[in-house]
Write a protein that binds this DNA or RNA. Structure first.
Lengths: 273, 273
DNA sequence: TAGTGGTCTAGACCACCGT
DNA sequence: CGGTGGTCTAGACCACTAA
């Protein structure tokens, strides 16, 4: 079956349909594995086949499979666990909880209501529990600006969620979340209220849509009347606007989110290297 | 010479001073290479020895050296160039110019005065040329807050640079930059004015201090009177405050920077994965 | 052509995990 | 114990760069 092109080594046969794309073997393996992830052959939280089995299946050495998996692990698509296996990454895991949550409480007493207990190193644990209050969840036709960001045709169905995140009982983030209607049929305020845990975990388990990458643009804005009221702050207060486009496999955009953050007691954390 | 502990394989002798630290061979190699970088044995822009030479020097296989260098390359400490060699990363290279500059012009006509010409892929080229206007550069004793961030004793000498960055002729960023005085002797407004190019390139070549990592905290604030005047905006305008601590080898903090950004025509860009 | 990094292999052994 | 990922080796060959 699986014919891989031995990057100009002429070993593997059948150069049929692939076209003139020459990638190293391990990248071809990586692509095959990614297809398996995208198609749901292996689901979040489940193990993928072992390195030796994959090596046998694709008729390559274990080292080559290993390098392919290394890259998937670096991209957080997969998690290796020594002695156990390699598992499809999931937003339900604690490790992934804070990968897309960059807002953290300023140091000091605040925000320490629920620090991850046993954790040792890894990243500085934000240890923040935010309560979500859904203001509304309704379906409408995409404004052109939203459609463009989500790669939809203008007027296609989208879901709009508006919610407030509270930290320590104080409204802290006002979110406007736009999702393509086709992927999120049946999403409603009730189901959002019923779900306990990260939103992305819900999207993953309930709608089979897993966010793997996002780009964000940040600006400083002032609170208009409506947003000021929702956040229980004075009109004109400076807010941190975080505009995010999240993408799933194939780099397809599946979420546009605008978060208006009160940065009185919190900050957006980033690391450059 | 170089005795490496063969991670519990008992091959390498002399377990003398190292203590009970067991790291894989390639990590020990990595540490040795890092020491070479830190000590200036190989300088920014220069090549480090070839993989085969390093393998011979440390008495390990080329694959082990390779894995060590892979990690250094992933951390942007070193740049691989096929057919040429492996080079110490430098802030003078174009590739590194925008690694620490996350402010980008909003799309549209603006900011296209000097796009990197030949570039093809890599990262979305911000293509922004900002002019630096130094307001002042003076030496003083560190306020306790600054001293803490720079791991100095309160009252030690520090350098304070205040400057404005202009994009398209408009003041856009007001920077307050704090540096440890001991590392930056002889730094003055005149030398800053004389230097053309990125600040970090100057720090690297003129003061032998190379920034390799930084953490940033972002908040939204309002322009007070002084900052509003410096940025030529109205008092009360929302500004994006970017507070950065940059570190050099050994994770030693060597810069505290507060940037107040006008985000009318620009945004802070970030990528999550 | 010689030297560099990049790919691929095959096999050995280690560290860790569950049973 | 058997199976998994993690480390290390030795050697072959490829792709690229410069002299």
């Amino acid at each position: 079956m699986n014919e891989l092109s031995r990057s100009a080594r002429g070993e593997g046969a059948a150069e049929a349909d692939a076209g003139p794309t020459f990638a190293p073997l391990y990248r071809q393996i990586r692509a095959l594995l990614m297809r398996g992830l995208q198609s749901g052959e292996w689901k979040p939280g489940e193990p993928i086949p072992s390195e030796v089995e994959l090596a046998a299946r694709y008729r390559v050495s274990q080292g080559t499979v290993r390098k392919a998996i290394d890259e998937l692990a670096a991209a957080n698509l997969v998690v290796r666990r020594q002695g156990r296996g390699t598992f499809v990454a999931s937003h339900r895991e604690v490790r992934a909880q804070f990968r897309f949550l960059r807002l953290r409480p300023d140091e000091g007493e605040a925000g320490m209501s629920g620090p991850p207990e046993g954790e040792g190193a890894d990243e500085p644990a934000p240890g923040m529990v935010m309560i979500s209050r859904v203001l509304e969840c309704r379906r409408l036709r995409a404004p052109s600006e939203i459609a463009r960001a989500l790669a939809l045709r203008a007027g296609e169905a989208v879901v709009l969620i508006r919610r407030v995140l509270e930290a320590e009982g104080r409204p802290t983030v006002l979110d406007e979340i736009w999702l393509p209607g086709s992927r999120f049929r049946g999403l409603s305020a009730e189901r959002l209220d019923a779900w306990h845990g990260p939103l992305y975990a819900m999207f993953e388990t309930e709608f089979g849509t897993r966010m793997i990458r996002a780009t964000e643009r940040l600006k400083a804005v002032t609170a208009d009347r409506a947003r000021a009221r929702a956040l229980q702050v004075a009109e004109g207060v400076p807010l941190l606007l975080v505009e995010r486009v999240s993408r799933t496999y194939g780099d397809q955009p599946v979420e546009l989110r605008r978060g208006y953050c009160v940065t009185e007691r919190h900050h957006y954390f980033n690391e450059l290297s």
